[in-house]
Design a protein around this nucleic acid. Structure first.
Lengths: 181, 181
DNA sequence: CGTATGATATATCAGTTTGATACATTTGTC
DNA sequence: GACAAATGTATCAAACTGATATATCATACG
């Protein structure tokens, strides 16, 4: 199988911004990248060790007192590998929405159940949208920096997307009410 | 770990509509469900065997002549399990867009590269939107049937989503042009 | 009539990722 | 001083993907 492993490039990408620990990478995945990509410790730490073996990152012991802490930095080899991957077309863009799955099979539980799923989804979207608008507000002050421009584009993507989800929720709820009668 | 396996319910859901083969299930995943869920043979066939062991589906030999063919049907136990799962709130809704990942790390390759990724994404979205509009058109003739109503809602979701993606593409391209200067 | 291509159909496997868990220390707060 | 929350690394079973293997049937083309 061709190299389909994505975690390599996610971590190299994060390290292309600045050196950091595995724990910090997880935090980035859970904040800045959360709207379009995820990742767990179970793949972060093993991948970092593999990247070091390949000479794409270097470790540096950054322990303070008793707490173990390892700071990773990207090497020239790592940056080259990242750039090559970035130049290639994206292979896969996919969504995996359990809400839609449950909606699709909604016939088993009826309009009532479907409506509840949509309302829960709506609440979640509102929350996410609020977070994204905060990101947008914060970012708008630092748009001179190039790195932030790319970040800004992805935030805009998220905002547009969630706004359209909310519109769909309205429409779907209206249709369901109509069908109930 | 709590039961996080989703394939069970995807297959039970498909069989709740009508009996079919594993191959047919794959086709449904690649057509009707493609916009919000996926699945591969590597998880379909083993899961079907497991579901049979659990008494949630029954096998029926439907071979014609030399070609092996197994038709699966959902049992009462299976339908009960499906209903219970459908009643529970959706656990996870996520997108995984390699395009956005490459865009986020765009600083390494610059505005030129970022623009190319967006344009490729735009083309893909236009294609998908066209397929979805075909689905919408076809479905609109059969909306009396309840099963189709739920399907229709997911198609509407897809259409709204891709339309907003295309709007974002326009905006992103405009911003990039502005930043280039 | 032969043959090439694509669709139908089941099955397995290595590689990738998740979600859970374990363990230990540091920081903040009441 | 005690307790909770955050920081930090690490591993593992279970789930899933993408590739591959194998075989038959339908069809179109010369």
């Amino acid at each position: 199988m061709a190299n389909t492993k994505k975690m390599d490039y996610v971590l190299l990408g994060l390290l292309s911004h600045e050196p950091m620990t595995g724990y910090e990478m997880k935090k980035r995945l859970d904040s800045s990248l959360r709207f379009f990509w995820g990742g767990s410790f179970g793949s972060i730490y093993p991948t970092l060790n593999q990247l070091e073996q390949e000479g794409k990152v270097t470790k540096e012991n950054a322990s303070s007192n008793g707490r173990e802490k390892i700071s990773y930095s990207i090497t020239d080899i790592g940056r080259e590998a990242l750039k090559e991957w970035l130049k290639k077309p994206a292979e896969k863009d996919e969504i995996r929405y359990e809400t839609l799955l449950k909606l699709f099979f909604g016939n088993e539980t009826g309009f009532e159940g479907a409506g509840e799923h949509i309302e829960r989804f709506e609440e979640k979207c509102k929350d996410e949208l609020q977070i994204l608008r905060m990101f947008e507000e914060n970012l708008s002050h630092y748009l001179e920096e190039d790195t932030h421009k790319y970040y800004y584009l992805t935030v805009q993507f998220g905002i547009r997307t969630y706004e359209s989800y909310l519109k769909w929720c309205e429409e779907a709820k209206r249709l369901i009410e109509e069908w109930k009668r």
